[in-house]
Design a protein around this nucleic acid. Structure first.
Lengths: 243, 243
DNA sequence: GCAAAAAAGATTGCATACGATTTATGTGCA
DNA sequence: TGCACATAAATCGTATGCAATCTTTTTTGC
């Protein structure tokens, strides 16, 4: 039941972006992006055109278009004559992702606060329930769903803010954040993040836009503080070996 | 001589983005984008794959990739089985473009202010000279160059800010702004904009980051204030007829 | 046994071909 | 004349083929 509610939220989020869903490439991109954000595809994984094509039962032409889209979003890195790989963001890139979010999301919180409706608040509540359920559960599947739900909160906020351009920027930033957390995350951000999401919704509900904005800024700082962005031998080696 | 200096600036701006310039599609995209930003291609102009292909002497495959890139940037709108058209932003889209810039650019000004070097200041000065020269000149060619130079100022600032992600967002926003101004611009923003650019560089040079940020915000407001975003019969009709 | 060169294999870049869909044109009928 | 319908042209969506490039394996020389 609430699963259906969550689906509706997701639909609502995507409907603004994929309104004129042009072709199959878009669908493949969405599936691949979900897989990357859910960490079913690890950073550095090779995504060959042929493999993707046969997997989705389309020609290389279509697969290539999907990979090109992901490349624009920064989720895959393509090298000429070598192919596409799930992005392996450097610590510097990670810092830039979060610097961008620190700049944009407080403003999005204010915009959303100024436009939020009772129905939106209800959607946020459903979203928070969804998050809470996955935190309670155990196992890798619940973990993935939790990561996705956590990102969806930020996307829902961007949707409520009502600016399609910023919404698309946020989709990119949230997706890339997921990669960054996968690579550099130290602990489970989950419990801490969920309570902060709840506080933000509270501020939205009471119409305190300044508070919502400040809470968002702190929330992002907390997520970034959980990262270990020191250059490690592991990832550097893996990147050097093109793994 | 200063023309060469300007080229270097442009190279500097693009080098961060097109570092791994993968193929010819990128080059075609750049040329088309320049043409759109320069208003040599009017909003609504049809860009058929075949035409673009023969024009640049490549196959439809490559032309299509270039158009897809422009579609992601919001510079062209593609309709399934109908083709690609230079984007025709609605007043609502125009508002969103400038709302995004109001949110992002003051922060970029602060970031740039914190990292600006003497060499950067010199580059800004060269950029301002470039702008000034085109304002002084007359004729449509100078006009186009002036529009481009005005946008390049904002892109240079984004480059100095040192965040590749925000830089790319700004490239998109500046390009779309050019379309918006082409459609809804009332007067020549030029003289006013140039003096404001000069003030911003002054603030950067004296290290007053707060001032630079405020000046940027006012600058964006001034540009937007020059727009006439009321729904007009003209554009609405043209859009309805898919022209 | 090891290093370097050469060949084989795999994968991408790009062009072209064909079916599907849309748009333009022409014809018959009221 | 005006409208409906059928036909033709143009354009897009997608698959496939070939050359170029990169990677891996094998071979060869020392």
């Amino acid at each position: 039941m609430e699963r259906i509610a969550a689906m509706n939220i997701a639909d609502q989020i995507y409907s603004a972006t994929d309104s004129a869903t042009q072709d199959r490439a878009q669908a493949i991109r969405d599936q691949l992006r979900d897989a990357i954000v859910d960490r079913r595809l690890a950073p550095g994984t090779k995504l060959s055109e042929g493999e993707v094509g046969t997997l989705f039962d389309v020609s290389r032409t279509v697969a290539r278009a999907a990979l090109q889209m992901l490349s624009f979003e920064g989720l895959v890195r393509t090298e000429r004559n070598r192919g596409a790989f799930v992005a392996n963001p450097s610590p510097e890139e990670a810092r830039q992702v979060f610097a961008s979010r620190r700049l944009i999301e407080p403003g999005i919180a204010i915009a959303a606060c100024g436009r939020v409706t009772a129905a939106d608040i209800a959607a946020f509540k459903a979203q928070l329930d969804e998050e809470g359920r996955f935190i309670a559960e155990r196992g890798p599947t619940a973990r993935r769903s939790e990561i996705k739900a956590s990102g969806d909160f930020h996307l829902l906020l961007a949707a409520v803010a009502g600016n399609a351009i910023l919404q698309r920027f946020m989709e990119e930033l949230v997706a890339r954040s997921s990669l960054v957390i996968a690579l550099y995350g130290r602990s489970g951000v989950s419990a801490c993040g969920h309570s902060e999401h709840t506080e933000i919704v509270g501020a939205l509900g009471s119409g305190d836009c300044g508070l919502a904005s400040r809470l968002m800024l702190h929330h992002i700082d907390h997520i970034e503080a959980d990262l270990d962005l020191r250059v490690r031998a592991g990832p550097a080696l893996r990147e050097a070996l093109n793994f």
